[in-house]
């Protein structure tokens, strides 16, 4: 049936052969293109117009009564500032740890939850792990400070009962990054599983049946049916995660204390405390611009890799 209609459609198009390929395509896609208009307009107004503000990076906006262009002065200050390189290094380390430890977790969890036999249980577990997403970072910070407290926290009580010395995790340079990554996982892992669960739910049952007929066991089905079906979602989420991974902000701002500044000051908090909070918008924007460039490089790199492994890039 469908082959017949495409033949008819192609015949119809032959008539328009005089027009160029593009015009034909344009004509055919007109209704679709119209659907795109509101979205594109929205992006231009609310995303691209504000980007003009990035020019502030080349001004002394915020520090003087009159704005004037100062060229690359903010960037020179940036690259010569001692705090900046530390912040850059911390951003890369913390982001990398988040990608390494946090990113695979929702996938694994979604697969495991999918293996639960009782549907009600599956729903319940899904519901429970999703709840922490509602805690704001301030509260997560307070909860972790409580759980990790050297004197009263559960974690240290376990350590002490095993004969260890209590650790002041929240203020210890050797531990604080782990606290950041751990609390991030705790808060958002359940939220992250939603998208995978939604994708798993649409896998064609026939694929499983066919695999069963071929004699595939549970593991094989997970490896050869479920996981490949998630492939494109995983790649997309990875790319989108990479695009935002450097922007970790609120969590650090509410959780860090002076003794761990040197291991946890990231670009966003640096831009906030040394730029925005001082009203030095030009400088803050220069930091953001730098972050954007690094993010862009990461995204392009990630896209290249996914092209190599999946045969197609996301962007």
């Amino acid at each position: 049936m469908s082959t017949n209609t495409t033949v008819v459609a192609e015949k119809g198009m032959v008539k328009q052969k005089s027009r160029s390929e593009f015009a034909r395509k344009f004509h055919r896609q007109k209704p679709i293109l119209i659907l795109l208009i509101p979205g594109i307009l929205w992006y231009i107004i609310f995303k691209y117009t504000p980007m003009l503000g990035a020019l502030a990076a080349f001004t002394d906006y915020g520090t003087k009564a009159k704005i004037s262009f100062i060229g690359f002065e903010n960037f020179i200050q940036l690259f010569t500032s001692p705090g900046f390189w530390g912040a850059f290094r911390n951003t890369l380390i913390i982001s990398f740890c988040n990608l390494l430890f946090y990113f695979p977790l929702p996938i694994i969890l979604a697969l495991l939850m999918n293996e639960l036999i009782f549907v009600r249980l599956k729903r319940l577990v899904q519901f429970i792990v999703y709840i922490p997403h509602f805690f704001s970072w301030v509260v997560v910070g307070a909860i972790f400070a409580m759980l990790l407290s050297p004197s009263e926290g559960i974690v240290n009580q376990i350590i002490m009962s095993l004969g260890g010395d209590p650790i002041y995790f929240m203020a210890d340079q050797n531990w604080f990054r782990s606290v950041l990554v751990g609390s991030y996982m705790w808060r958002d892992v359940g939220y992250g599983t939603i998208i995978y669960i939604a994708t798993i739910s649409t896998i064609d049952v026939q694929l499983y049946d066919a695999a069963t007929v071929d004699g595939a066991g549970y593991w094989q089905k997970m490896l050869y049916v479920t996981l490949p079906s998630l492939k494109s979602t995983i790649a997309t989420v990875l790319l989108l995660t990479v695009a935002r991974v450097l922007l970790i902000f609120e969590q650090v701002l509410v959780m860090y204390v002076p003794s761990v500044y040197s291991v946890s000051e990231v670009l966003t908090t640096y831009s906030f405390t040394e730029g925005l909070l001082n009203g030095n918008i030009g400088y803050a924007t220069a930091v953001s611009l730098f972050t954007a460039v690094v993010s862009a490089i990461l995204v392009i790199g990630c896209n290249k890799i996914s092209k190599k492994f999946l045969g197609e890039g996301i962007i």
Partner: peptide
């Protein structure tokens, strides 16, 4: 001074806290 004020304040807080903690 104007440029480095907040970096300065953060630094003395950081050093002091590390000395107090004994790290």
């Amino acid at each position: 001074y104007d440029k480095n004020l907040s970096a300065y304040k953060k630094k003395i807080d950081e050093i002091s806290s590390k000395i107090i903690l004994g790290t």
